[in-house]
Design a binder for these strands. Structure first.
Length: 622
RNA sequence: GGGGACGUAGUUCAGUUGGUUAGAAUGCUGCCCUGUCACGGCAGAGGUCGCGGGUUCGAGCCCCGUCGUCCCCGCCA
């Protein structure tokens, strides 16, 4: 029943034939997307990565081919040879790029059959992720998935090309290494040769890339796999890919220009113009204006409306005059009903003393002039949703005024971040009303879009967030902790306050945010041994402890370390944004479930006792 | 570790207050069909209602447990 391929060769893909090919005899191969059987006339849609082409089997023209086509079923692998024929006017399918032609097959080979698939790649929407992941090879046949991986490939290629053009070497670093100072749990690899000892899979190539700078490699990059044994989210997988780079003698701006360069190149590769340079904002300003350290610029920011209130009014309304009072505006959402407001309450975090005024109509009855001022300040019209977030003066639990993070107090941050999160949550909930998020899908969701840059697209809004605080106060441990890894350099002019006022010390640390997602983060590193020691001491770490934990690196630092810095960007997240997807699973070929299981290969699994014995491992019983 | 949603035909789902034989669409199988493109027509097959226990005369539906998928919190410097 099945045919041998013999010496047949594919002459064209299923996506490239046009009317210009009419008259040519061609051979195409692909999967049966759909079969339409009209008795003596059978249509087969052949699908491959490049597209779909209609093959016609006419019993008069090719009785053998027609007989084969009768046996063909969805997902059978077919080889069709025949003449390209322009379709009659009434037979043109304007929905298909190849819809003006068809192949009048003179010969049809069934190269392979297929079991009835659990779902069809030809179907538009499929829900069950469990089935999709188990039969991932079928899921990946879907045009949407193939498009996602085309985007992923083009982005990676553009990044490589650009960085290479800027003098960066792509250098690999080990997968089997030792635990590094990152904060996540390690995946461990037992050593057979060294009983009881383990390698760790890298959470990032952080220390290796710094050592490459010490090694004089000048500019390094890597599209690097990273591993972190933490619980998953829609935007977090246990193994993920970073565009990792490091350079010698940079200013912060030097790093920014490089990243802007390769991102612009990557976006251009998928047909989108990304204007550079990207805007910048300090951490403090981001918190004040957006209530979050990864602002989504597609939405209006928070508005400071303190001035709209008199001291007396604040007292009547039980609002803390010392804390920020901000308006959250969501365009075009309109007034909410009492029930809608009720439903939205869980979106607001009042645990740390923030308070929400979500019924401006009611407030307007008592204080019409206040509401008028708030509306004016927030630039709101009657079609916008507007709420006010302020501080609750009766709330003094835990949050303190004295322990500062940067120049904002913990209580100020509590109010601002409650407002900032509400802003994002409301926008997500009413996305279909304000339409600020919609453009993304329209721009890149169309696999057929091949040409034409979307000039200055407002769908993708990157922003640098700079000057993060160097330290965070850990309430549980009652001590200052590095907000990032301990090799991040503080600002030169903040150095003298390391001990006296750690809260005010700014790090030369930066994030790149896009559309409310953290795309990447980096820093200018510490390159001097004496500074590094000071930082460790500021963190309450003894010289001995530092030596045990990072000895090899501290040693390396002493052999002529140049100033250096870099950044790492999440490739998966970047592609996710470009693909308009909401989960990393849509842009990772073989992802894991929320419980870190690979449903296709069924991993992890128990291993044999012999294997464990060899590795000197004895599992503990539950 | 915690919270929430979901689990019924291959797939997507419906299933009333707990009541007789669990439905639809699609897919699948067979037959018919020479211009379809989500082809159409006729006929048919297809169910451990995730799993285990309980309540009840009677459970897809109620209760307890458990497993799985997804989302969130914690966690992820």
């Amino acid at each position: 029943m099945l045919d041998f391929l013999g010496t047949k060769q594919r002459t064209h893909t299923c996506g490239e034939l046009r009317t210009a090919h009419a008259g040519q005899t061609v051979t195409i191969m692909g999967w049966v997307n759909r079969r339409r059987d009209h008795g003596n006339l059978i249509f087969l849609d052949l699908r491959d990565r490049y597209g779909m082409t209609q093959v016609v089997l006419d019993k008069d023209l090719s009785p053998d081919g027609h007989a084969k086509a009768e046996q063909a079923r969805p997902e059978y692998v077919i080889c069709a040879t025949g003449a390209v024929r322009e379709r009659g006017k009434d037979a043109v399918n304007p929905k298909m790029p190849t819809g003006e032609i068809e192949i009048a097959a003179s010969e049809l080979l069934i190269l392979n059959d297929a079991k009835v698939p659990p779902f069809s790649p030809a179907e538009e929407a499929i829900g069950n992720e469990e089935v999709r992941l188990k039969y991932r090879y079928i899921d990946l046949r879907r045009p949407e998935m193939q498009h996602n991986f085309e985007v992923r490939h083009k982005v990676a290629l553009a990044v490589r090309k650009y960085l290479s053009s800027q003098g960066f070497f792509e250098i690999e670093t080990p997968f089997m290494t030792r635990s590094t100072p990152e904060g996540a749990r390690d995946y461990l690899v037992p050593s057979r040769v060294h009983p009881g000892e383990f390698y760790a899979l890298p959470q990032s190539p952080q220390l290796f890339k710094q050592i490459l700078m010490i090694s004089g490699m000048d500019r390094y990059f890597q599209i690097a796999r990273c591993f972190r044994d933490e619980d998953l989210r829609a935007d977090r997988q246990p193994e993920f890919t970073q565009i990792d780079l490091e350079m010698t003698f940079p200013q912060q701006e030097t790093v920014f220009r490089v990243v802007e360069g390769f991102l612009a190149a990557a976006f251009k590769a998928v047909g989108i113009a990304l204007p550079t340079p990207f805007p910048q904002i300090t951490y403090d300003e981001a918190m004040r204006r957006f209530g979050i350290d990864k602002p989504d610029l597609r939405l209006p920011g928070l508005t400071d409306v303190r001035e709209a209130f008199t001291v007396g009014q604040l007292e009547t309304l039980a609002i803390d005059p010392a804390l920020p009072i901000v308006a959250v505006r969501v365009p075009k959402v309109g007034e909410l009903s009492r029930k809608e407001r009720e439903d939205n309450r869980p979106l607001f975090d009042m645990r740390k003393g923030a308070k929400l005024i979500d019924d401006l109509k009611r407030l307007e009855k008592t204080f019409p002039e206040v509401v008028a001022k708030v509306r004016a300040a927030a630039d709101a019209n009657e079609h916008d949703l507007l709420v006010i977030v302020a501080g609750d003066p009766t709330h003094h639990i835990r949050a303190s005024d004295t322990k500062l993070t940067g120049r904002l107090s913990e209580r100020e941050i509590a109010v601002l971040s409650a407002a900032g999160n509400l802003r994002v949550e409301l926008a997500k909930k009413y996305a279909d009303r304000h339409g600020c998020f919609g453009v993304t899908d329209a721009v890149v969701g169309d696999p057929e879009r091949e040409t034409g840059l979307v000039e200055g697209s407002r769908a993708f809004r990157p922003i640098w967030v700079t000057d993060f605080p160097m330290f965070e106060y850990d309430e549980a441990e009652q001590q200052w902790m590095p907000a990032h890894h301990p090799f991040t350099s503080p600002h030169d002019e903040d150095m003298d306050r390391l001990v006296s006022d750690p809260a005010s010390v700014r790090a030369r640390y930066y994030d790149l945010a896009m559309n409310g997602l953290e795309l990447g983060s980096g820093s200018i590193r510490i390159h001097r041994q004496d500074v590094q020691q000071e930082i460790f001491r500021a963190l309450g770490m003894s010289d001995e402890e530092a030596k045990t934990r990072f000895g090899f690196f501290l040693e390396a630092l002493q052999y002529g370390t140049p100033p250096h810095g870099g950044i790492a960007l999440g490739l998966d997240r970047l592609v996710m944004i470009l693909a308009g997807a909401t989960s990393l699973r849509e842009v990772i070929a073989f992802p894991k479930t929320a419980k870190a299981i690979d449903l296709m290969v069924d991993a992890p699994t128990p291993v044999s006792d012999a294997q464990l014995r060899e590795l000197h491992i004895r599992p503990t019983k539950q």
